[in-house]
């Protein structure tokens, strides 16, 4: 009998331990959702919340202080976000503090960041509306990346147009044939066309990647949670921008040239017929074309790197190795 009572006590301890762990687990998991602490409500209004949802975290200068309770439309251009904030923060958060929508890490969940306003305004109370600021570095960077893509698309379209111009321009062809420009010019033209096609495919790829990245899904989205990846992404964006500028000028130059040549040849006047005999002019066309050529090649390379940058970290290493190989090859 005594043993039995003792066993029942032990059973009680056992079950109690389980229950306590259950409660502790629920508490620890739930502490970010503020189920168990006392809170107050703050508001902020945005024109774009960039996918913020109920339950996302609210940080004050980087410290977890609450969660998003409600996201609702006030009008077609204004969205109100209601946040549940820990009661302790009533003595910290002021009316002039600035709320912004951001991302946890590069690719994490959306968060609301509250930054001190530093104007000495009174403390915020229940239901107060905070000042807001839209967009932050990550957001901006991704926006830039998307913009870059659009630009790339435009450039490649322009390149294509130019090539078409060159192709369809009988006069120019005649000029080239007549003047027996080196065969390599023809080759360059073919290269430009190829590069354009490739550029278009790559741009399409890049766009889907960027879309995925923005939605934070897929392997790319996962990989990007890593900070190292974030840095290389930023680098890549910078690279694309530079390339863009260069390709831009080239394309304009080229198309300008083509139009002038065309016009001049058609009208039979102006400096062109004369220039045709000018070896300098021939050289100029030659050098422009060769620049387009190398630039197209570099463009490809860059795009390739871009792709690999997202998917394989080892790409740069591979390239280095190849370079080394090439450097060694002539010595043999």
């Amino acid at each position: 009998m005594k043993q039995k009572a003792w066993n029942n006590i032990k059973l009680g301890v056992f079950v109690l331990a389980g229950l306590l762990l259950l409660i502790a687990g629920l508490y620890l998991i739930g502490k970010d959702t503020n189920l168990f602490s006392r809170n107050y409500i703050l508001r902020a209004q945005f024109s774009n919340v960039e996918g913020l949802v109920v339950g996302n975290n609210v940080r004050y200068s980087g410290i977890q202080v609450g969660t998003v309770k409600e996201v609702k439309f006030l009008s077609d251009t204004l969205i109100e976000v209601r946040m549940v904030v820990e009661e302790d923060m009533q003595s910290i958060i002021r009316k002039d503090d600035i709320a912004s929508v951001g991302t946890d890490g590069l690719m994490g969940n959306k968060i609301i960041n509250i930054a001190p306003g530093r104007t000495g305004a009174p403390l915020a109370v229940e239901n107060d509306l905070l000042r807001t600021e839209e967009g932050n570095s990550t957001e901006a960077m991704l926006a830039k990346l998307a913009l870059t893509n659009n630009n790339l698309l435009e450039i490649s379209n322009e390149l294509k147009k130019t090539v078409q111009n060159i192709n369809t321009s009988r006069n120019l062809w005649r000029l080239l044939n007549d003047e027996s420009l080196p065969a390599s010019v023809l080759e360059s033209l073919a290269n430009i066309r190829r590069a354009t096609e490739k550029a278009q495919a790559t741009v399409a790829d890049l766009q889907t990647i960027v879309a995925d990245v923005k939605a934070g899904k897929g392997t790319v989205g996962q990989l990007l949670r890593d900070t190292a990846m974030a840095v290389s992404l930023a680098d890549a964006v910078k690279g694309i921008r530079q390339l863009e500028n260069r390709a831009d000028t080239l394309a304009t130059q080229l198309s300008e040239l083509v139009t002038t040549l065309d016009n001049d040849l058609a009208t039979g006047k102006g400096p062109v017929p004369a220039a045709l005999h000018d070896s300098l002019m021939v050289q100029k066309v030659h050098s422009i074309l060769s620049r387009v050529d190398t630039s197209a090649a570099r463009f490809n390379e860059n795009m390739e790197a871009m792709k690999h940058n997202f998917l394989f970290r080892g790409y740069f290493k591979k390239q280095e190795k190849e370079k080394q190989k090439q450097a060694q090859a002539p010595q043999q």
Binding site: K4, N7, N8, L11, F14, V15
Partner: peptide, 13 residues
């Protein structure tokens, strides 16, 4: 039931 809970729960711990 209590006895079985003890035998099955506690003694497996």
């Amino acid at each position: 039931l209590l006895r079985q809970c003890f035998l099955i729960g506690n003694l497996s711990l």
